[in-house]
């Protein structure tokens, strides 16, 4: 599987890493991370490892701390305690820009797009950022052609070619979420964080998104961590599942183990079914 090769590549690319006991070289590692809001512990002493090439789901009831967990990884919020390590570097106090440069890119539970611009223009900002030319006050022909080609490529990957010139704010909700993923993809993520990518979608939209996430993982070689409430999707595509409940990790393992876990069944799946 490509996951295994990606994982090996990561391991050889970073030989100075301390090998984890029997486990993969930790691509993303959270060490005893907590985040308090006043007296509320939204994330409570969470330790977490993710290998390169993984497709991992984070599940848990409303208010479990899933989005907060993403905020700590992506740098929107600093943790109250603990450390966040990505690809061998302690990024706990590093800026959002630094994390993105390292390859951590996210989407949001509430779609964040450039609403008055077209699909093409939304993705263009990401492509120009990825090429490091944001600050250029003019653009030459060659560069423009290269940028446009890359945009078309990304639009094709997410199957929005026929809507490339449409204003994103006027698209259906499902398409808007796909645009957000395409924009995230445009900056070249190594770890993609998707916060409820199928939230509020109809059946066919959901299917399209699930297929997209799967292809990003297998064809584009992106490691994906996604929050999801739909258990069919979670158990359908995730290679590994982390269950959060009231800020704590309740369970963590492959789908078979999670579905068999009595604590998870009691605390979460039982309610959801």
């Amino acid at each position: 599987m490509s996951a295994a090769t990606a994982h090996e590549a990561a391991a050889t690319a970073a030989p100075m890493a301390a090998p984890q006991a029997a486990a993969a070289w930790p691509f993303l590692q959270m060490v005893n991370v907590s985040r308090r809001f006043g007296s509320l512990k939204a994330v409570d002493d969470v330790s977490f490892d993710m290998a390169a090439g993984e497709l991992r789901a984070v599940i848990g009831p409303n208010g479990a701390g899933k989005t907060t967990f993403f905020n700590l990884i992506s740098g929107l919020l600093p943790p109250s305690q603990g450390r966040v390590i990505f690809d061998g570097e302690d990024i706990t106090r590093r800026s959002i820009a630094h994390r993105v440069a390292k390859g951590i890119v996210r989407t949001f539970q509430i779609t964040e797009i450039l609403p008055d611009l077209s699909v093409f223009e939304n993705i263009r900002v990401g492509v120009e950022t990825a090429r490091g030319i944001n600050a250029r006050p003019w653009i030459g022909r060659g560069e423009r052609i290269a940028v446009n080609r890359r945009i078309e490529e990304l639009i094709a990957i997410v199957n929005l070619t026929d809507k490339a010139r449409r204003i994103v704010g006027e698209l259906a909700h499902g398409d808007q979420r796909v645009v957000e993923v395409a924009v995230a993809l445009s900056v070249g993520p190594r770890l993609l964080l998707l916060d409820e990518p199928t939230a509020g979608m109809g059946d066919s939209e959901t299917e399209h998104m699930v297929d997209l996430v799967r292809r990003l993982h297998s064809d584009q070689g992106v490691s994906v961590l996604f929050i999801e409430h739909d258990m069919d999707i979670v158990f359908g595509i995730a290679q590994r599942i982390t269950v959060l409940d009231r800020g704590r990790v309740l369970a963590d393992g492959p789908p078979e183990q999670i579905s068999a876990d009595p604590q998870v069944r009691a605390a979460y799946l039982g309610e959801a079914e």
Binding site: A97, L117, V125, T129
Partner: peptide, 25 residues
């Protein structure tokens, strides 16, 4: 300027500053 990447970045700031920040800008 408005056709350039700098101009595109300006418009993106107007549209959604957070989106841009999380693209590393």
């Amino acid at each position: 300027l408005l056709q350039s990447p700098l101009g595109h970045t300006w418009v993106a700031i107007r549209e959604n500053r957070r989106r841009l920040q999380f693209l590393g800008v």
